[in-house]
Design a protein around this nucleic acid. Structure first.
Lengths: 172, 172, 172, 172
DNA sequence: TTTT
DNA sequence: TTTT
């Protein structure tokens, strides 16, 4: 289709440490559970209410995955940009399940830590020392080995994301 | 939580006419099915590939619901802003299901037709005459009486900025 | 024009305390100076470089102006959404000048404090107690009486979605 | 600074054909003039009003520049994402001038044509045949020759953008 | 002028 | 199910 846009922007906090999975291919996928909440005062009762929304975030971008692994932890506040993607899978009983995730992959993905500093002064020895935001440069940032020639934008063969890392018949 | 943001921005096409549901309360809820797609050339095979993502959009805002009902139809291209929300429900067998939707409701929601012209075909005569984008004003658009003086949007003295370089038959 | 969008999203720090101007009309306008910066390593020299961009933000929305006045100060980190606007003015010599600003006014504006907590230090006693983000409701937030029934934001039956995986002492 | 975001999202129409400038370095820079407009009904007078805002867009990204050159023309409707940047320059009299532009360069830039089709059925013979959106992959998309080793993110030495292409003491 |  |  000529001209479509699929963009999610979140500012929220991690509900847990990042989950890192190493792929057979050598790659790395990071899952985040991010909470956003809203506060409002009920117009009728006058009481203050809060509603929290949990978002499952999947980082395929190597560069951003490394950043997440190195600098994010439970409670971290992040700004992120990704795309909505709904994935179909089967639970143990073979029933179809759908899970909607925010995918950080390729262009127009972004992940920025909004907390203090990465993980403190001495963190991140070496060159990339100190996290100060990161952007994907096409799935291959960082000198990583993407093997097999690329497939720069969408992932070549939609690597399966096996649910089960959290309760297994909850969408994430 | 102090400071969170939950925003989705889509530009896509409706896969079907809007579904309108009238609530017992007299309100109205509109559901849209919006497609976004990506095209890329496989780096390995060189073949062109396309992937379409379908998004379920739910409009609670009265003003935007009316706009959707009046101006959108199967095939329409729209720009929209809303929030991600995952809803839990039970299927006939009582099994828990989760559904993630893009909710247009209250502040920071937006719905803009990108197709031809909204005011075409005689629609929307009179006051709201001609759809040219719509924004929610807090769940109260439509019947609400906000009448309290003051041009609402642009600031009173909003100085025109006219570079003058533009020919006058530009279609906007 | 049918269908246009003009949106700026910034996450940055205030370079100075907010400047408040009281209008003859009784209204209030707040100006912010917001810095965003980028860091990168020069590919040629290998040295680390930084570039800071300063943004002039003008808040016409009453509700957001009050928030800015109450909770923001030099150094505060904010998330904000507004619109680009270029204003023409004359300097003392009568020469034309143009100034581009990010205007927070009316719909689709947002201002959220990303620092510590808004409600700290005793600020914001009473009803609006505790800043936890704010959105414009159409130029009428604050003094307006919108009282017409209905919890405004989340839909009535907004089902809680609690994956349960989260420890309960998470700071959000 | 840890964690800042500088993002502009526009949907608007080109007021003129793209201006292409070839740089001594062999690169290419494209300038767009994009109009966004708002319509509203004055709360006091009841009359319908419209305000158009003109945006100067500068495309440094090679890939997006090529796209703009090939598919955009006066009247085209586009979706674009870029960054705000204010540039200082001197007019003929040596007076300081400032110009704020939306820069498409490097990561997190996007340019998507929302009009019908690229430039018609048979356009764009060969591989990239038919414009269907484009994203920057870091300043070097397209196999272009960026010479001199790169400088991937911000431009190494802020290539001067000589005003004058339009009236010369208007900021764009 | 901020922030790291 | 859209669109190109």
């Amino acid at each position: 289709m000529a001209g479509s846009v699929n963009k999610v922007i979140l500012v929220g906090n991690l509900g847990a440490d990042p989950e890192i999975r190493n792929l057979p291919s050598g790659g790395k996928v990071v899952n985040l559970s991010v909470a956003t909440s809203e506060n409002w005062k009920d117009k009728n009762t006058g009481e203050r209410r809060e509603k929290t929304e949990w978002h499952r975030v999947v980082i395929f971008s190597e560069g951003l995955a490394r950043v997440a692994e190195s600098y994010l932890k439970k409670g971290s506040k992040v700004y992120l940009e990704g795309q909505l993607q709904t994935r179909k899978w089967q639970d143990q009983s073979g029933a179809d399940k759908y899970s909607t995730e925010i995918v950080l992959q390729g262009f127009n993905s972004n992940l920025t830590l909004l907390d203090g500093r990465g993980d403190g002064e001495g963190a991140g020895a070496g060159d990339s020392g100190g996290f100060r935001g990161a952007r994907d440069n096409g799935g291959n940032s960082g000198g990583g080995n993407n093997n097999s020639g690329g497939g720069q934008r969408p992932r070549p063969s939609a690597p399966a994301f096996e649910p089960g890392g959290m309760d297994d018949d909850i969408p994430f």
